[in-house]
Every structure is written in structure tokens, then in C-alpha cells.
Amino acid sequence: MLRSAVLLWMLSLPFISQAESTQLAQIFPTSCHFSGTFTQNKHIEGISFPLQSEGDFYFSCNFGLVWNTITPFPEALLYANARMNYRVDEQGKIEEMPSTTRYVMSQFFLRLLKGDAEYFENEFSVSALQENQGTLLVPKSDFMKRGLKHIKVNKRLLSDSANSVQLDIEISDATNQVTHIVISDILEYEIEDRQAAVEQCLELYPRPLQWCRLMRSPGYYNR
């Protein structure tokens, strides 16, 4: 009996791993280059109402991420690469992003948009939420657990449009702050190289010009 149980357990190992990959594949975007809109609801312990913001974004694996908040406070985050990240305030003033923001973005958010399965398999316990409510990601390392409790991601097909999807992301951190981001109106692009990614950026964000220029040549800001 015991021998059979061990055998079964051993046989189940590859299936668990495969199940994690399948689960992750379900939440990852189908393209590496896309734009869309977002709604963010943040619940902070001590504030009895949610803090809601809205905006749009553009992401390309070859280029980076433009995260443009429109309401209630205009602000853009320009994420060129792991080291070069900037915040643009409502007056258009550009400043380097604090390291913590950079950390949160690089460690998790960008990898999710990029569909970095290996990272999530290694760093998180991946499981399915009940009743098709999406995927639960719980950090494995003590280090990450100090800042992050868990992430729930759910990719849903919208009923009003055949191919339209919506990505629901819920991030719970160690101070019980819950950030719920809904990504919708996703448009995928056929982009072959970095130049094409820059051109797409310029098309989406023609003004101010600095945003895409900065993304193209991060050294531009430092000069």
C-alpha cells in the first residue's frame, strides 16, 4: 500500500510541474507587443475607501513599458530596462524612479506582461483558484514573502467580443494593502524589431516626444 502511494506520488511529480506551466500559460498574454487600458483599485488599511485610478499603457518585449495614469493624477512611468526607469509628473518633469518601484516592476509586473514562465515557476507556488477564478501565485522565498503575500491573476474572455480578453491582477502585500488592476482593451501588434517598437510607441504617445525618445535611448535623460 505504502509502496503504491510512493509510486503514485513519484508519478505525479512531472504532472504537478506540467500543471504549473499550463496554469501559467493561461494567464500570460498571447503576444509580446500590445497596448491597452487599465483600472487600478487600491485598498489601503487605514483608508476606508478604495483609491481608484485609470490610464493606458503600451508594452513591447523589445522596448519596455509605458504606464500612463490619466486620472485622478496624470503621471507616467517609463520602464526602459532593468536599470533605467523614469517617472514623469503632470508638469512633464522627468525623474529617475526610486529603487523600490523599480524593484516591484522588474520583479513581478514586467515579467507577467512578458510571460516569463521560468521566473514564476521558480519563484512562486502556482495553483489554480477555485471556480475558475484564475491563478494564485504565492512567493516561495522568505525574502519575497516579507513584501508580498500573494498575487491572483485571472485572464477572462469578454462576452461582448469574440477575441477580447481582460486581465485581472490582484496584488496583496505584507502591510495588507491590496491593489487590484484590470487590464482591458488589449490590442496586439506584429512587431519585428526594436525600431518598429519605437515607431509604435510614437504612434501611441506622439506627445510629449521625450517619452519614447527616452525609452529608445535611456542615456538621453542622463545627458
Binding site: 487600478q40 487605514g46 483608508i47 512611468l77 502585500d173 502591510t175 491593489t179
Partner: peptide
Amino acid sequence: AQQKLYQIGNGVRLVPFEEDP
């Protein structure tokens, strides 16, 4: 300070809101 509450990355706080609003 109010605007900062809405930011995605800066939202990760080392200290709970009530102790460091």
C-alpha cells in the same frame, strides 16, 4: 502625498499607512 497613494510601485510600503500616512 495623496498622488503617491495611487502609484503602482510606490504603493509598497515598509510601514503601514496608519503609522506613516
